[in-house]
Write a protein that binds this DNA or RNA. Structure first.
Length: 583
DNA sequence: TGCTGTTTACAGAGAT
DNA sequence: ATCTCTGTAAACAGCA
């Protein structure tokens, strides 16, 4: 069990980006495990897979990380595409710049620009600031840990391992990290155990804040998470979420000072809860009301939250009907059979995305109230945060027709790219597809869960089809770069056009109507949606999704389709500007 | 002494 | 226009 903070291998202001990238590309493993690699074949981010021992800490101990450099996983493309999408505008030039309509420059100009920018691109591309906010970075880091918690230094290292950009100016961004941890309710501090002394506490995600970025934007949350336990008066009941549901029971023990029974009465949520509530309408700390707790009180309550979490890390063998307790990672490692029991139990309590999306259980406007406040809100409003991870299970995973050899399907190589770009385009253009996705439980391809999780369904699928394991959402910098590039390519040629979705992205609710024309079953809900059948458009039907396409787009669709089916040559620098080929 | 953590302050950008 | 979120800087305290 990893409990100590590894020393940072990155010296402030000394790390050469190029060196770092080359090392990573050549498979040199840092002494401290590269979380991307460890994530590639595991499912540390998934609540149902927390028990897997090959997680963040485990890999660092057994030294198995080097073989997991699966930087070309199409799944990982989502991550980068997500990043690029979150940015809104491609940060770099593209090898395909100028392909798209409406660019306003001639091909020659584009070529010149490409040649000019690509040089700088190669220098700077890998060092571009990742399009994630610090909060999202922290969230990703914490979710990547099997313990769902990290020390500050571990968070630092996780970020630096993943993003060379953050190997410079460490003082600046690390200060911001600390500020984010302290300032945001979504992060809770967990005391160290007495037998695991060290500097600093562990940080974990508040259990109710785990899906802050499921809406799709890594730069900015739709809404800042605020702990609201304060308003509930007494401390949390056993049926309430506890932040330490994610904390291994043997990882930490409450310090003596927190053994005071009264400490739990001071709900730790009071600290941030009170602060957040009183400050909920003016974010400027300087405008805090006098009702704010004192500094000492806040610290005390903060620690009490950790104590509360510790109190509840013991595995729960019974769940309330309203609360699905999550498996304790550490406990599950030692008692996998009980975890399986729990999972089975949970499967009866909470339908998975596939179950929910099954034709016999098609969501309607009645049972699935949708939050259509924003198209970015891609999940049913009544979804518990815990449940959203289920949405990452591609429905097709349970569809036999999809269980074909991906190697025989070149289009599949770009399926996730296509999905990501389609999604980005759909959202950007406020298209029907975006609404369809919103109605279809389609996981946001850029969601943290999508990027970092392997669902239980995927796990089952991989067990049956090990050769598909390459499609596990691997996270590494290479893939990140690739995907940004892919995204750029896509968006440059996707202005007003979406590439065809692929099987993986077919939401369950996208069915073929009895009339034969594909429709989205949820489109009949009371939610206002753009009309799927525009009179001025031609229907493009691909893999169950109905996309209205204008005539002018149909030719582009063919081009785009060709583009998407072009298999990347990983030795082709055009595909990886700024990236040194690994082999 | 350096790291960790909290807080204040302010600016900028996105969302409403 | 206003609100909200994020990033940055800085001061400060506590701790290993």
């Amino acid at each position: 069990m990893m409990l100590s903070s590894p020393p940072s291998k990155y010296q402030p202001f000394q790390q050469s980006y190029a060196t770092g990238m080359n090392n990573m590309a050549n498979g040199m493993q840092p002494s401290y495990v590269n979380p991307m690699n460890t994530m590639s074949l595991t499912a540390a981010g998934n609540q149902f897979n927390q028990a897997l021992p090959q997680g963040y800490g485990g890999m660092s101990l057994n030294g198995m990380g080097s073989g997991a450099m699966s930087g070309h996983s199409p799944h990982s493309v989502q991550m980068a595409a997500a990043a690029a999408a979150a940015v809104g505008s491609p940060p770099m030039g593209s090898a395909y710049a100028g392909m798209g309509p409406g660019v306003g420059i001639t091909p020659n100009m584009a070529l010149m620009l490409n040649r000019r920018t690509e040089k700088a691109y190669r220098r700077n591309y890998t060092h571009a600031k990742p399009p994630y906010s610090y909060i999202s970075l922290i969230t990703m880091a914490l979710q990547s840990s099997p313990n769902k918690m990290m020390t500050l230094s571990e968070i630092y290292n996780w970020i630096m391992d993943l993003f060379p950009f953050y190997r410079q100016n460490q003082q600046r961004w690390q200060n911001s990290i600390r500020h984010s941890l302290s300032f945001n309710d979504c992060f809770v501090k967990v005391p160290r155990s007495a037998d695991k002394p060290g500097k600093g506490s562990y940080w974990s995600l508040h259990p109710d804040a785990g899906n802050m970025f499921e809406n799709g934007c890594y730069l900015r949350r739709q809404k800042r998470f605020k702990s609201d336990k304060k308003s509930k008066g007494a401390g949390p009941s056993s049926e309430e979420h506890s932040p330490l549901e994610n904390i291994p029971n043997d990882a930490v023990t409450p310090p003596p000072s927190l053994s005071n029974p009264g400490s739990t009465n001071n709900s730790p949520h009071d600290s941030h809860g009170t602060y957040a509530e009183s400050d909920s309408d003016n974010k400027s700390p300087g405008l805090a009301t006098p009702s704010l707790p004192s500094h000492d009180q806040m610290q005390y309550n903060h620690a009490a939250l950790g104590h509360e979490m510790l109190q509840q890390i013991q595995p729960t063998h019974e769940s309330s009907s309203t609360h699905q307790s999550r498996p304790n990672p550490a406990y599950a490692v030692e008692h996998p059979e009980k975890l399986m029991q729990n999972q089975h139990h949970h499967s009866h309590q909470q339908p998975t995305a596939v179950e929910v999306c099954s034709p016999s259980n098609t969501p309607t406007s009645e049972n699935i109230p949708l939050n259509t406040h924003s198209l970015h809100e891609m999940v049913p409003a009544n979804e518990k945060s815990d449940d959203r991870a289920h949405h990452n299970a591609p429905h097709s995973m349970n569809q036999e027709h999809h269980l074909v050899s991906h190697e025989q399907d070149p289009h599949h190589l770009y399926s996730h790219y296509a999905q990501a770009t389609a999604y980005a385009a759909a959202v950007q253009h406020n298209s029907f597809a975006a609404v369809a996705a919103a109605h279809s439980f389609a996981p946001h391809p850029f969601s943290i869960s999508s990027l970092m999780n392997v669902t239980d369904h995927q796990q089952q699928h991989y067990q049956q089809h090990p050769h598909h394991q390459t499609y596990t959402p691997a996270k590494d910098l290479r893939a990140y770069q690739d995907a940004v590039q892919y995204y750029n390519n896509g968006m440059n040629s996707l202005t007003g056009l979406m590439p065809p979705p692929v099987n993986d992205s077919v939401p369950a609710q996208c069915t073929i109507a009895s009339s034969g024309s594909p429709v989205n079953s949820a489109s009949s809900s009371s939610v206002s949606t753009p009309s799927p059948s525009s009179s001025s458009s031609t229907s493009h039907y691909s893999n169950g999704l109905h996309y209205p396409l204008h005539h002018s787009q149909q030719h582009q669709l063919h081009l785009q389709s060709d583009h998407l089916t072009h298999q990347p040559d990983h030795t082709d620098a055009a595909f990886y500007p700024g990236c040194v080929p690994a082999n």
